[in-house]
Design a protein around this nucleic acid. Structure first.
Lengths: 205, 205
DNA sequence: TCATGAACCGACCAGCGTGGTCAATGGAAG
DNA sequence: CTTCCATTGACCACGCTGGTCGGTTCATGA
């Protein structure tokens, strides 16, 4: 992530990253407090500014880091050969779970980044080309012929994506609130149940 | 809402309420700025503190007001005779739309209130009895016998509720971002499409 | 043994934004 | 004319801000 970070104790490094991700997720840049970050990370003010020369640099480094982490997780764990859409969704959710396990606020932070950039593009009048990787993840090599044709495909896709988004949201919230460990076996079983219901609505008989 | 508000111009009153709801939705109490509120409401600092004796009182009055508005909207517009679950959901979404049209940030604000109270209860060890009215809205007089029995009911309900929550979320975001008017005829038609898909998954053939 | 330099601390700073005040103004009603 | 209240915005004391810096601790390696 940062040359200054290479020799640091990994546990402390993650404490700093997570504390910063949390603060920047809960407050926009201006209102996010470096004091709060160091307090929650249990380090001194000096140390934070020893690693990052300013609040702005910390933010930018966090951007890069977060994108890198998610990209890597996908590269390492997504099986692009799988053609069944729901199987793909299951993989995506499990990857999200794995990443969230280490960095609970990383997706909140990324969501803010994406929104900011979308707004910036809108203001400049640039048309929105949504992130290529995200598109790919949901579509590349997927066999869409299994979907029924008597309903609007766009709507079917929304229902599916929304369901899994909300499911992950709940997972993350439970993790943060109750410090609940992830039981990936259990999660996979639960996912199967959602998929069973959704398939009835979305796939041909 | 407030005895001081009784003689005020309704348009100005709503400007103040909406500005405050927005600020308190985007920032927790401490970080919410009364300066920002008056700036966006286009009134002077003095006027805000003429109507509300402190930031805290403003917050409390907003609480009462928001709950009142939503309760009233339900009381006036929900048809408790309707027994079909999806018909009920449609009504709820349309009511939310109507309320959001006037107060775009009211549900965000209420969501924070509910979360705060849930957390407070958790800390005190009180078991969570979720809001009676909300329970009623989703269950009272509903004919649940139409639902299929070969899938987990809890999961089916989640998918339905999540879908409509996300749908409203999108509606509100579009309204705020593009100042898009609501076309209730159009919304109703769209809802029908979602319902058509969901029924396949949830109702007996 | 000592030297080097990085990791780390926390008191400290100038400045800005805070919630809240208040004397003054405007304008409507009687 | 008086009364009254909505409304203004300059003003204030103060707390928190991002960032600095002189200092200590500690590991390494010669």
């Amino acid at each position: 992530m940062n040359e200054l970070f290479q020799n640091i104790d990994a546990e402390k490094r993650d404490r700093i990253i997570n504390s910063a991700l949390e603060e920047f997720s809960k407050n926009r840049f201006d209102k996010a407090s470096t004091n709060t970050i160091v307090k929650n990370a249990n380090i001194s003010k000096g140390l934070l500014f020893h690693y990052f020369k300013s609040k702005k640099e910390l933010y930018h480094k966090l951007e890069k880091f977060s994108i890198q982490i998610v990209t890597d997780a996908i590269a390492e764990n997504l099986d692009w050969e799988v053609a069944d859409f729901f199987e793909r969704m299951k993989q995506i959710v499990l990857i999200k779970g794995e990443v969230t396990f280490h960095y609970p606020y990383i997706y909140d932070f990324l969501a803010i980044l994406i929104e900011e950039r979308t707004l910036a593009k809108l203001r400049e009048g640039v048309e929105e080309r949504s992130n290529d990787l995200i598109d790919q993840v949901y579509t590349h090599n997927i066999d869409f012929s299994k979907f029924r044709e008597d309903v609007d495909f766009k709507i079917v896709m929304e229902i599916i994506k929304w369901t899994f988004e909300k499911y992950v949201e709940r997972l993350v919230k439970e993790r943060i609130k109750f410090d609940k460990e992830f039981n990936f076996k259990e999660i996979e079983q639960e996912l199967e149940q959602y998929i069973k219901v959704l398939k009835k609505a979305c796939y041909k008989e």
